[in-house]
Design a protein around this nucleic acid. Structure first.
Lengths: 124, 124
DNA sequence: GTAGCGGTACGATAATTCTCGTACTGACAC
DNA sequence: GTGTCAGTACGAGAATTATCGTACCGCTAC
């Protein structure tokens, strides 16, 4: 997988420096028990799986997922994922966009991402 | 890996029928989010890792681990692991012995066991 | 019988986490 | 300026989970 350059392409086709990530643990500080805990929730598993499987060129905002939950609940879950080291968030003007820290997770916990991608939510 | 026959060898070298496992979810009912949740705890990760790496011919009792915790706390954690489908427990007379449901976990969540084996508890 | 042992069940308190309403911010459009 | 929009921060109540004391059970040894 190609390394993502620290720029992104806007709708006007300019390359712009990426905003700094919001506070997050260094890759070496990511703790498996913390990651497990944060993934012990169907909504958060859904977030990460969708980022892994439906995400394309751009990072995504909370709204992109289309969850029918209050905004403050979504903030809570995204923050939990970020503070555990699972996702990286950057502030793009109004929006806060998220992506999975794929390289860091693959490096620290090989196989974990596959578990998430293969996860299926419970029926009912 | 060889399939474990449903007998075990006693100290007097007799093969004896294994007691039935205590209530547990079927392999197909094991939920990743549940497993993640139950492994979001250093003590329980330690239990499973030790069962995976130090265990030999026999299953092991709670006391084998040597944790300095009240018995009722250990019961609580072992039960949580069993009800999530991570370990299997059988009653052998006085003792309740545990082993990891290795085949079931490998079948349902390939790679998960390696994550646990490679886990290191936090320093301090 | 009694004692000891591995372990459970119950229950209470403490701690953590979830959920979400409300108020607010910062950026943009006009 | 005003409005709107994505999202946050705070805080409260509910729900879940952790911890562990106590009482108890069933088996074995004596």
């Amino acid at each position: 997988m190609a390394h993502l350059a620290p720029t992104y392409r806007t709708s006007s086709s300019e390359d712009v420096a990426l905003p700094h990530p919001l506070p997050e643990p260094a890759a070496s500080e990511i703790r498996l028990e913390r990651v497990m805990g944060v993934l012990a929730d169907p909504l958060r598993l859904t977030i990460v799986k969708q980022l892994l499987t439906r995400s394309e060129e751009y990072d995504h905002t909370c709204g992109w997922f289309g969850f029918d939950r209050p905004k403050s609940s979504l903030t809570h879950h995204f923050k939990a994922l970020r503070e555990a080291g699972v996702i990286r968030q950057r502030q793009h003007g109004l929006e806060r966009r998220s992506r999975v820290r794929l390289e860091d997770l693959d490096d620290r916990f090989p196989g974990l991402v596959d578990l998430i991608v293969n996860w299926q939510p419970a029926e009912g």
